[in-house]
Amino acid sequence: MTGGIRGPGGRVRRARRALLTRLATRCLVTAMALPQTLLGLLEPAPRHGYDLKREYDARFGEQRPVKSAQVYATLGRLLRDGDITVVGTERVDGPDRTSYALSAEGVTHLERWLAEPEPSTAHLQSEVYVKVVLALRSGRPAEQILDAQRDAHLGVMRGLTARKRGADLPTTLACDFTLFHLEADLRWIEHTAARLHRLAEELS
């Protein structure tokens, strides 16, 4: 038996589907903040896609890898939406390289993203970490990003704690699971807040 859903072939297909789901989710999470991350990296000075990809890899690539094609496709969308502009083209030992700069609209979008707390996910820390690094590089008060995230998390924790009142044990334990994870996020936020000056020094 090779083709039945309950046979070995079915198991392989299910495992493959699960793997694809995991990969798709990972790509989705990675892609979610890529436009804003590129805006942040572009803010100090105009640069071309190759340079942006190199800096992205150096700062965030280990946790959140992206392909060159994703970077160029994202730059194309940012250009179309008016968040960046083309400031020049040059040729250095190879193909033409287009330099991009952040537009006023791009700054607005970047700042809105920086100020907005993230919902709690398994990738929260890396998402918040990216915001903290970009804020420090641009001279914005990074501690306020952590404060806003803490406020948002505490609000969710209050809601879950209220839900536990009078609830049955399965509901209580489900709420506790999320509460402990949120608590872990908040501990990371506190540790980061206490070491922001050192992080700023190491990034400069």
Binding site: L114, A115, P141, E143, Q144, I145, D147, A148, R150, D151, H153, L154, M157, R158, L160, T161, L179, F180, L182, E183, L186, A193
Partner: peptide, 22 residues
Amino acid sequence: TRVAAYADRSVVLRDGRLTAAP
């Protein structure tokens, strides 16, 4: 923070003063 979640509202102190929103 799990104890603070029993409150109606939380404020955070750092260096002797309350933290602020962005």
